[in-house]
Amino acid sequence: MTGLHTAYLLGLGDDALIYAQRLGEWLTHAPQIEEDMALGNVGLDLLGQARALLTRAGEVEGADPPRDEDALAMLRDEREFRNVQLVEQPRGDFAHEMARLLWFSTYQAELYARLVDSADETLAGVARKAVKEVDYHRDHATQWVLRLGDGTEESHARMQAALEAVQPYVAELGEDHDAARWAADQGIGVLPSTLVEPVTTAVHDVLARATLTVPDAPRWHARGGREGLHSEALGYLLAEMQHIARSHPGATW
């Protein structure tokens, strides 16, 4: 079942890779240079996780010739990416990013806390390192959601609007799929649906402290990312991210 094992690792790695790319877009666009650095740091943490996870995915896949992290990141097409649609959405305003980061980092924190016991030793190692990184991402998002939510009338309204905008992309994080079911059975992975309760509770706690309202359940929600179905945004993101690697195959410096 190397296919499902690979697919599970790609899901984890692609979430980190694609979100790292989005966070990198904040450099020179954040409200302050200090925040450029903070979001850049978060992105680099995620990129580090992505490298280890994609390398492991390539090993498990055992293709001939083998695909390394670069081949997997730069030479796959849109339909082969297995990230959730939350991370590929275009960068909104700063409040949108904090809403997305709060959900995603809380999800990752709960996920990695369980993956430290994975039967896949490499994955467990990645998780052990990532737990501390993600803890900081979550703290950063929390600090900002608290300040914007419980700030001025303007910041409160914009933070609330951002939460509403992100809400349709949250449910996908907790949806089970074939690769995750298999990985959970093998003691390699975590069943996403088991994360829903702790993640939701933690995020809602932050929202309450920030005087924000939990958005109503959305009528539509994103799905399909784990099977390679994506929104329009991913194609543009990949075009930018992959263009150098594809224009100059094998280039190094």
Partner: peptide
């Protein structure tokens, strides 16, 4: 560095 308050200053300092 610049920061809106002491808590965020501490975090920005960590990053910078």
């Amino acid at each position: 560095l610049h920061a809106p308050d002491a808590e965020m200053a501490l975090r920005n300092a960590r990053d910078l």
